[in-house]
């Protein structure tokens, strides 16, 4: 009951966040685009003249004060109507939703893979700290955290795609081909999570309740999993949430290398031509995904740390 209440509270707390971010997104994209009327006209291939500018201002409601424009925009945005892309002349929502699932799949897979790699590696490193497995894992995680992902991607593509021919060179957003791009993205996160988790585990491992867990009938490894892992993983969950924001915004380099038709490439191309409706829609959709994932992580948090209660 308490948990349900807390989850509801979190959802309510999201509303002001959404409002503030949409406000900023609307305002900043308007400011940075310069004269919206001018940009709109040019995108339609119409030579801006005094009359055409006045007409388009009237049509787009640009003569209204900015807050009124925002409210009108927000009303439409609530129905996921962001207007029509200047570039492609198709509805923004359609454009985004044809690409966003691919990005989301990639972001979720990469986050999951990173955790799946990090947990056993960190446990292994802690269990055998300061001996060979620990040293190997530490060196590997340092390398993993510093290698550029596009380079790893190219190498993997060359090795598995060109040499071994077991992976397609063009992944084409197909879910069965997701492993290589997701793996490539996950390496740097897996490396960071391993280091953070190992550090926390070693710290916790020194505490009396782990040291004496064997007296209560647990093995050293068992104590590490039962008492150590749950305590050590909380900061990693926070990191997953933060990093997910980066991932869900699209990964231009990885999308390009693996021909993964995600939102990253599209968003960049639209920003270049000041495709305002797309930029605004993109910010909102990414924000929504980010907020939802962090909400889910909050719930996970609650189950791991039962002490979190409504204050």
């Amino acid at each position: 009951m308490k948990r349900l209440k807390l989850i509801l509270l979190r959802i309510v707390q999201i509303i002001p966040v959404l409002l503030i971010v949409t406000m900023l997104a609307f305002w900043l994209s308007n400011v940075s685009a310069g004269d919206v009327a001018n940009v709109t006209l040019q995108s339609k291939g119409i030579q801006p003249t005094e009359e055409s500018l006045a007409a388009i201002r009237e049509e787009l409601g640009l003569n209204d004060p900015l807050p009124v424009q925002y409210i009108n925009w927000l009303k439409k945005a609530c129905r996921l109507d962001f207007g029509v892309s200047f570039q492609t002349n198709r509805p923004v929502t359609e454009e985004i939703f044809s690409r966003f699932p691919a990005t989301l799949e990639l972001a979720i897979s990469a986050s999951l893979l990173a955790v799946i790699f990090a947990i056993p590696l960190a446990l292994l490193a802690t269990r055998y700290r300061d001996s060979a497995p620990d040293h190997v894992i530490r060196v590997m995680s340092s390398i993993g955290a510093t290698m550029p992902d596009f380079w790893i991607g190219l190498m993997l593509l060359y090795f598995f795609g060109v040499q071994l021919k077991i992976a397609p060179i063009v992944a084409g957003s197909k879910i069965q081909n997701i492993f290589l791009p997701a793996f490539t993205l996950s390496i740097q996160y897996a490396a960071t999570y391993t280091r953070v988790l190992r550090g926390n585990l070693v710290e916790i491992n020194r505490l009396d309740y782990i040291k004496a867990a064997r007296a209560r009938g647990l093995s050293e490894g068992g104590a590490l999993v039962k008492h150590g892992l749950k305590n050590a993983i909380l900061p990693v969950i926070t990191l997953i949430g933060v990093n997910f924001g980066k991932l869900v915004g699209g990964q231009v380099a990885i999308e390009t290398i693996f021909s993964w038709n995600g939102i990253g490439q599209f968003a960049i191309s639209c920003m270049k031509v000041k495709d305002l409706p797309v930029i605004q829609g993109y910010i909102i959709i990414v924000l929504l995904a980010y907020v939802i994932v962090n909400l889910i992580l909050d719930v996970v948090y609650m189950y791991i740390d039962p002490r979190i209660e409504v204050e």
Binding site: L207, D208, Y209, A212, A215, G217, H227, N231, R307
Partner: peptide, 22 residues
């Protein structure tokens, strides 16, 4: 060792480190 461990126990200083905080 596990079989005889139930016959031997340890009490620490009651600092917060003696227990899993969760």
């Amino acid at each position: 060792m596990r079989k005889i461990r139930s016959h031997m126990q340890i009490v620490f200083q009651g600092s917060s480190n003696a227990f899993n905080p969760y």
